[in-house]
Simulated assay, not measured.
Amino acid sequence: MKLALLYAEFKSDIDVIEKELVQALNSSSHMLNDASVHLVQAGGKRIRPVFVLLCAKFGQYDIERLKHVAVPLELVHMASLVHDDVIDDSNMRRGQHTVKAQWNNRVAMYTGDFIFARALQSLAHIEQPIIHQVLAHTMVELCNGEVIQIEDKFQLNQNIKTYFRRIKRKTALLIESSCYMGALAAGVSQKDAMHLKRFGYFVGMSYQIIDDILDFTATDKELGKPAGSDLLNGNITLPVIYMQNDPRIQAYVEQIQTGQLTEQERQHMLTLVRNSEAIAKASAISERYLQKALHEIDQLPKHPMRKKLRDIARFIGKRDF
Protein backbone atom coordinates (compact mmCIF):
# COMPACT_ATOMS: atom_id res chain seq x y z
CA MET A 1 0.00 0.00 0.00
CA LYS A 2 1.25 3.48 -0.88
CA LEU A 3 1.79 5.91 1.96
CA ALA A 4 -0.37 8.47 0.14
CA LEU A 5 -3.38 6.14 0.47
CA LEU A 6 -2.77 5.77 4.19
CA TYR A 7 -2.63 9.55 4.51
CA ALA A 8 -5.65 10.25 2.28
CA GLU A 9 -8.07 10.73 5.16
CA PHE A 10 -5.83 13.43 6.62
CA LYS A 11 -4.95 15.25 3.38
CA SER A 12 -6.74 18.51 4.20
CA ASP A 13 -5.23 18.59 7.70
CA ILE A 14 -1.75 17.76 6.41
CA ASP A 15 -2.17 20.68 3.99
CA VAL A 16 -2.90 22.90 7.00
CA ILE A 17 0.29 21.65 8.65
CA GLU A 18 2.32 22.24 5.46
CA LYS A 19 1.13 25.85 5.29
CA GLU A 20 1.89 26.31 8.97
CA LEU A 21 5.41 24.91 8.44
CA VAL A 22 6.09 27.46 5.70
CA GLN A 23 4.80 30.28 7.92
CA ALA A 24 6.84 29.09 10.89
CA LEU A 25 10.01 29.13 8.80
CA ASN A 26 9.48 32.65 7.50
CA SER A 27 12.42 34.87 8.39
CA SER A 28 13.47 38.47 7.78
CA SER A 29 16.81 37.06 6.63
CA HIS A 30 16.67 36.11 2.95
CA MET A 31 19.35 33.46 3.45
CA LEU A 32 17.59 31.82 6.42
CA ASN A 33 14.30 32.04 4.58
CA ASP A 34 15.68 30.40 1.43
CA ALA A 35 17.48 27.65 3.38
CA SER A 36 14.40 26.88 5.49
CA VAL A 37 11.95 26.84 2.57
CA HIS A 38 14.44 24.61 0.72
CA LEU A 39 13.90 22.04 3.47
CA VAL A 40 10.10 22.15 3.25
CA GLN A 41 10.21 21.82 -0.52
CA ALA A 42 12.51 18.80 -0.20
CA GLY A 43 9.48 17.02 1.23
CA GLY A 44 9.48 14.05 3.54
CA LYS A 45 7.05 11.44 4.76
CA ARG A 46 5.63 13.73 7.50
CA ILE A 47 5.32 10.64 9.66
CA ARG A 48 5.55 12.58 12.93
CA PRO A 49 2.67 14.98 12.17
CA VAL A 50 0.54 12.10 10.93
CA PHE A 51 1.10 10.21 14.19
CA VAL A 52 0.02 13.33 16.09
CA LEU A 53 -3.22 13.41 14.10
CA LEU A 54 -3.85 9.66 14.30
CA CYS A 55 -3.41 9.50 18.05
CA ALA A 56 -5.49 12.64 18.62
CA LYS A 57 -8.42 10.87 16.96
CA PHE A 58 -8.82 8.87 20.18
CA GLY A 59 -9.79 12.12 21.93
CA GLN A 60 -11.14 15.56 21.01
CA TYR A 61 -9.78 16.21 17.55
CA ASP A 62 -9.19 19.86 16.62
CA ILE A 63 -6.72 20.58 13.81
CA GLU A 64 -6.39 24.25 14.83
CA ARG A 65 -5.02 23.06 18.16
CA LEU A 66 -3.16 20.00 16.91
CA LYS A 67 -1.21 21.92 14.27
CA HIS A 68 0.64 23.62 17.13
CA VAL A 69 1.82 20.17 18.26
CA ALA A 70 2.45 18.59 14.86
CA VAL A 71 4.43 21.53 13.45
CA PRO A 72 6.97 21.77 16.32
CA LEU A 73 7.66 18.04 16.14
CA GLU A 74 8.30 18.19 12.39
CA LEU A 75 10.46 21.29 12.88
CA VAL A 76 12.58 19.51 15.50
CA HIS A 77 12.99 16.61 13.08
CA MET A 78 13.98 18.95 10.24
CA ALA A 79 16.45 20.88 12.41
CA SER A 80 18.10 17.64 13.52
CA LEU A 81 18.56 16.60 9.87
CA VAL A 82 20.25 19.90 9.02
CA HIS A 83 22.69 19.47 11.90
CA ASP A 84 23.15 15.78 11.07
CA ASP A 85 24.18 16.62 7.51
CA VAL A 86 26.89 18.94 8.83
CA ILE A 87 28.17 16.29 11.25
CA ASP A 88 28.22 13.63 8.50
CA ASP A 89 29.42 16.04 5.79
CA SER A 90 26.48 14.90 3.62
CA ASN A 91 25.81 16.69 0.35
CA MET A 92 22.61 14.87 -0.66
CA ARG A 93 19.37 14.01 1.11
CA ARG A 94 16.20 12.75 -0.60
CA GLY A 95 17.88 13.36 -3.94
CA GLN A 96 18.45 17.07 -3.26
CA HIS A 97 21.41 19.10 -2.07
CA THR A 98 21.54 19.57 1.67
CA VAL A 99 21.60 23.03 3.25
CA LYS A 100 25.30 22.66 4.04
CA ALA A 101 26.02 21.73 0.41
CA GLN A 102 23.91 24.48 -1.12
CA TRP A 103 25.19 27.13 1.28
CA ASN A 104 27.85 26.15 3.84
CA ASN A 105 28.31 24.62 7.31
CA ARG A 106 27.86 27.92 9.14
CA VAL A 107 24.57 28.69 7.39
CA ALA A 108 23.39 25.12 8.00
CA MET A 109 24.11 25.27 11.74
CA TYR A 110 22.32 28.60 12.15
CA THR A 111 19.42 27.33 10.03
CA GLY A 112 19.09 24.31 12.32
CA ASP A 113 19.20 26.56 15.41
CA PHE A 114 16.59 28.87 13.86
CA ILE A 115 14.27 25.94 13.16
CA PHE A 116 14.65 24.62 16.73
CA ALA A 117 13.70 28.08 18.02
CA ARG A 118 10.68 28.23 15.73
CA ALA A 119 9.56 24.85 17.08
CA LEU A 120 9.49 26.25 20.62
CA GLN A 121 7.70 29.36 19.42
CA SER A 122 5.01 27.30 17.68
CA LEU A 123 4.42 25.13 20.75
CA ALA A 124 3.80 28.27 22.86
CA HIS A 125 0.18 28.15 21.64
CA ILE A 126 -0.34 25.00 23.74
CA GLU A 127 -0.95 25.70 27.44
CA GLN A 128 -0.39 22.19 28.87
CA PRO A 129 2.96 22.16 30.75
CA ILE A 130 3.40 18.39 30.29
CA ILE A 131 3.46 18.78 26.50
CA HIS A 132 6.25 21.35 26.78
CA GLN A 133 8.11 19.04 29.16
CA VAL A 134 7.83 16.12 26.74
CA LEU A 135 9.18 18.15 23.81
CA ALA A 136 12.01 19.62 25.91
CA HIS A 137 13.04 16.13 27.08
CA THR A 138 12.88 14.88 23.49
CA MET A 139 15.12 17.68 22.23
CA VAL A 140 17.69 17.10 24.98
CA GLU A 141 17.82 13.36 24.29
CA LEU A 142 17.97 13.94 20.53
CA CYS A 143 21.05 16.12 21.01
CA ASN A 144 22.56 13.53 23.36
CA GLY A 145 21.98 10.88 20.71
CA GLU A 146 23.73 12.94 18.05
CA VAL A 147 26.77 13.55 20.26
CA ILE A 148 26.95 9.88 21.25
CA GLN A 149 26.83 8.96 17.56
CA ILE A 150 29.86 11.20 16.99
CA GLU A 151 31.68 9.50 19.89
CA ASP A 152 30.83 6.05 18.47
CA LYS A 153 31.97 6.76 14.91
CA PHE A 154 33.97 3.88 13.40
CA GLN A 155 33.72 1.93 16.70
CA LEU A 156 33.13 -1.43 15.06
CA ASN A 157 33.18 -3.40 18.32
CA GLN A 158 30.14 -1.69 19.89
CA ASN A 159 27.34 -3.91 21.19
CA ILE A 160 23.67 -4.08 20.25
CA LYS A 161 22.50 -2.35 23.44
CA THR A 162 24.61 0.69 22.56
CA TYR A 163 23.02 0.76 19.12
CA PHE A 164 19.50 0.48 20.58
CA ARG A 165 20.14 3.35 22.99
CA ARG A 166 21.41 5.48 20.14
CA ILE A 167 18.47 4.90 17.78
CA LYS A 168 16.02 5.41 20.64
CA ARG A 169 17.43 8.92 21.11
CA LYS A 170 17.94 9.66 17.41
CA THR A 171 14.60 8.42 16.07
CA ALA A 172 12.24 6.44 18.30
CA LEU A 173 11.84 9.10 20.97
CA LEU A 174 10.59 11.71 18.50
CA ILE A 175 7.97 9.31 17.10
CA GLU A 176 7.03 8.26 20.64
CA SER A 177 6.60 11.93 21.56
CA SER A 178 4.49 12.57 18.45
CA CYS A 179 2.02 9.89 19.52
CA TYR A 180 2.05 10.94 23.18
CA MET A 181 1.78 14.69 22.59
CA GLY A 182 -1.02 14.21 20.05
CA ALA A 183 -2.94 12.13 22.58
CA LEU A 184 -2.33 14.60 25.42
CA ALA A 185 -3.36 17.60 23.30
CA ALA A 186 -6.64 15.84 22.45
CA GLY A 187 -7.44 14.94 26.06
CA VAL A 188 -7.03 11.18 25.62
CA SER A 189 -7.11 9.27 28.92
CA GLN A 190 -3.72 8.72 30.57
CA LYS A 191 -4.06 4.94 30.21
CA ASP A 192 -4.69 5.13 26.46
CA ALA A 193 -2.12 7.90 26.01
CA MET A 194 0.52 5.58 27.51
CA HIS A 195 -0.43 2.78 25.12
CA LEU A 196 -0.07 5.24 22.22
CA LYS A 197 3.25 6.45 23.62
CA ARG A 198 4.62 2.91 23.81
CA PHE A 199 3.24 2.20 20.33
CA GLY A 200 5.22 5.18 19.04
CA TYR A 201 8.42 3.99 20.70
CA PHE A 202 8.19 0.47 19.26
CA VAL A 203 7.25 1.76 15.80
CA GLY A 204 10.13 4.23 15.96
CA MET A 205 12.64 1.50 16.77
CA SER A 206 11.32 -0.67 13.91
CA TYR A 207 11.39 2.33 11.57
CA GLN A 208 15.04 3.16 12.24
CA ILE A 209 16.21 -0.45 11.94
CA ILE A 210 14.47 -0.69 8.56
CA ASP A 211 16.13 2.60 7.56
CA ASP A 212 19.51 1.15 8.49
CA ILE A 213 18.81 -1.98 6.46
CA LEU A 214 17.65 0.02 3.44
CA ASP A 215 20.87 2.04 3.57
CA PHE A 216 22.52 -1.16 2.30
CA THR A 217 19.77 -2.87 0.30
CA ALA A 218 18.23 0.07 -1.62
CA THR A 219 19.83 1.78 -4.61
CA ASP A 220 21.49 5.19 -4.68
CA LYS A 221 18.51 6.50 -6.66
CA GLU A 222 15.92 5.14 -4.23
CA LEU A 223 17.79 6.58 -1.25
CA GLY A 224 18.58 9.92 -2.87
CA LYS A 225 22.17 9.52 -1.60
CA PRO A 226 24.93 6.89 -1.93
CA ALA A 227 23.94 3.47 -0.59
CA GLY A 228 26.04 2.59 2.44
CA SER A 229 26.17 6.24 3.53
CA ASP A 230 25.84 5.32 7.20
CA LEU A 231 28.98 3.25 7.14
CA LEU A 232 30.74 5.71 4.84
CA ASN A 233 30.12 8.32 7.55
CA GLY A 234 31.40 5.98 10.26
CA ASN A 235 27.97 5.22 11.74
CA ILE A 236 27.87 1.57 12.79
CA THR A 237 24.33 0.26 12.34
CA LEU A 238 22.71 -3.09 13.16
CA PRO A 239 23.62 -4.98 9.94
CA VAL A 240 27.28 -4.03 10.43
CA ILE A 241 27.22 -4.95 14.13
CA TYR A 242 26.09 -8.43 13.09
CA MET A 243 29.12 -8.58 10.77
CA GLN A 244 31.64 -6.94 13.08
CA ASN A 245 33.79 -10.07 13.31
CA ASP A 246 34.01 -10.48 9.53
CA PRO A 247 37.57 -9.47 8.52
CA ARG A 248 36.28 -8.19 5.18
CA ILE A 249 34.02 -5.65 6.92
CA GLN A 250 36.86 -4.72 9.23
CA ALA A 251 39.03 -4.02 6.18
CA TYR A 252 36.36 -1.87 4.54
CA VAL A 253 35.90 0.17 7.73
CA GLU A 254 39.66 0.80 7.87
CA GLN A 255 39.66 1.91 4.22
CA ILE A 256 36.71 4.24 4.80
CA GLN A 257 38.36 5.74 7.86
CA THR A 258 41.54 6.49 5.92
CA GLY A 259 39.63 7.76 2.85
CA GLN A 260 40.91 4.97 0.61
CA LEU A 261 37.64 3.22 -0.34
CA THR A 262 37.10 3.30 -4.11
CA GLU A 263 33.71 3.29 -5.85
CA GLN A 264 34.27 -0.30 -6.97
CA GLU A 265 35.06 -1.31 -3.40
CA ARG A 266 31.90 0.44 -2.18
CA GLN A 267 29.88 -1.73 -4.56
CA HIS A 268 31.69 -4.86 -3.33
CA MET A 269 31.00 -3.82 0.26
CA LEU A 270 27.28 -3.36 -0.47
CA THR A 271 27.11 -6.78 -2.15
CA LEU A 272 28.85 -8.38 0.83
CA VAL A 273 26.34 -6.94 3.31
CA ARG A 274 23.31 -7.58 1.09
CA ASN A 275 24.23 -11.25 0.70
CA SER A 276 24.98 -11.79 4.38
CA GLU A 277 22.77 -13.14 7.17
CA ALA A 278 23.00 -9.73 8.84
CA ILE A 279 20.10 -8.35 6.80
CA ALA A 280 17.74 -11.15 7.84
CA LYS A 281 18.86 -10.87 11.47
CA ALA A 282 18.29 -7.12 11.54
CA SER A 283 14.91 -7.56 9.83
CA ALA A 284 13.89 -10.05 12.51
CA ILE A 285 14.68 -7.51 15.25
CA SER A 286 12.64 -4.86 13.42
CA GLU A 287 9.76 -7.34 13.19
CA ARG A 288 9.91 -7.96 16.95
CA TYR A 289 9.53 -4.25 17.63
CA LEU A 290 6.72 -4.06 15.09
CA GLN A 291 4.81 -6.86 16.82
CA LYS A 292 5.20 -5.06 20.16
CA ALA A 293 3.75 -1.94 18.55
CA LEU A 294 0.77 -3.90 17.20
CA HIS A 295 0.20 -5.38 20.67
CA GLU A 296 -0.12 -1.85 22.12
CA ILE A 297 -2.83 -1.07 19.54
CA ASP A 298 -4.78 -4.10 20.74
CA GLN A 299 -4.96 -2.52 24.20
CA LEU A 300 -6.75 0.58 22.90
CA PRO A 301 -10.54 1.06 22.83
CA LYS A 302 -12.31 -0.04 19.66
CA HIS A 303 -11.97 2.82 17.20
CA PRO A 304 -11.61 3.15 13.40
CA MET A 305 -8.13 4.61 13.93
CA ARG A 306 -6.85 1.32 15.32
CA LYS A 307 -6.82 -0.13 11.79
CA LYS A 308 -5.12 3.00 10.45
CA LEU A 309 -2.40 2.72 13.11
CA ARG A 310 -1.89 -0.93 12.20
CA ASP A 311 -1.68 -0.12 8.49
CA ILE A 312 0.92 2.60 8.97
CA ALA A 313 2.91 0.47 11.43
CA ARG A 314 2.97 -2.41 8.94
CA PHE A 315 3.95 -0.05 6.13
CA ILE A 316 6.87 1.20 8.21
CA GLY A 317 7.96 -2.31 9.11
CA LYS A 318 7.65 -3.74 5.60
CA ARG A 319 8.68 -0.86 3.36
CA ASP A 320 11.39 -1.38 0.77
CA PHE A 321 12.35 2.26 0.09
Rank of each mutant, 00 (worst) to 15 (best):
Q260A: 15
L272S: 10
F164S: 03
G234K: 01
I167M: 10
T219E: 07
L270A: 02
A186P: 02
Y242A: 11
R248N: 09
D211R: 03
L231N: 05
S206M: 07
R248I: 13
P239S: 09
D220F: 13
S206K: 02
P239N: 08
M205E: 11
D215C: 12
T217P: 01
L272D: 12
N233V: 00
V253N: 01
Y242M: 07
F164C: 08
D246I: 09
V240Q: 00
K170R: 02
S189C: 04
D220I: 10
Q267H: 14
G187K: 05
A227K: 09
D192V: 03
L238D: 06
K225V: 13
R169V: 00
T219A: 07
R248H: 13
G259A: 12
E277C: 07
T217S: 09
F202E: 12
S178F: 03
M269Y: 04
G204M: 08
D211C: 12
E263A: 15
L232Q: 14
R166D: 03
F202K: 02
E176L: 11
I213G: 06
K191Q: 13
A218L: 11
Y252I: 02
R274H: 07
Y242L: 07
K281F: 08
G224T: 14
E277Q: 14
A185K: 01
D220L: 11
D246V: 12
K225W: 09
T262Y: 10
D230A: 06
Q255L: 15
R169I: 00
D192Q: 14
V203R: 04
A193Y: 04
R165N: 15
K191C: 03
C179Y: 01
G234Q: 01
L173C: 06
I241C: 00
S229M: 07
G187S: 06
R248S: 13
Y242G: 01
G259K: 07
V203L: 15
L184Y: 04
A218S: 15
M194F: 05
E277F: 06
M243H: 03
L223M: 11
L238S: 01
S229R: 11
M269L: 15
E265F: 02
R266F: 06
T237G: 04
S177H: 04
A193W: 03
E222L: 13
H195K: 10
I175G: 01
L184R: 10
D212S: 13
T258N: 14
D211V: 10
Y201C: 08
A172P: 10
Q260I: 06
I209F: 05
L270C: 02
A185P: 08
G234A: 04
I249T: 05
L223N: 08
I241D: 00
L272K: 04
A186L: 01
V253R: 04
A278M: 10
G182A: 02
L261Q: 06
T271W: 00
T219I: 10
K221T: 14
M194P: 00
T171D: 03
D211W: 11
M205Y: 00
L174H: 08
Y180R: 09
L272W: 05
K225Q: 14
T271C: 02
M181H: 06
F164V: 11
R166I: 01
A185C: 13
Y163I: 09
F202W: 10
L232Y: 07
S276I: 11
T217D: 03
D230H: 09
R165M: 07
L232S: 09
Y163R: 10
Y252R: 07
P239F: 05
R165Y: 12
A227Q: 12
M243A: 08
Q250I: 11
I256A: 02
V240Y: 03
V273C: 11
Q190E: 14
A278G: 12
R166M: 13
E222G: 12
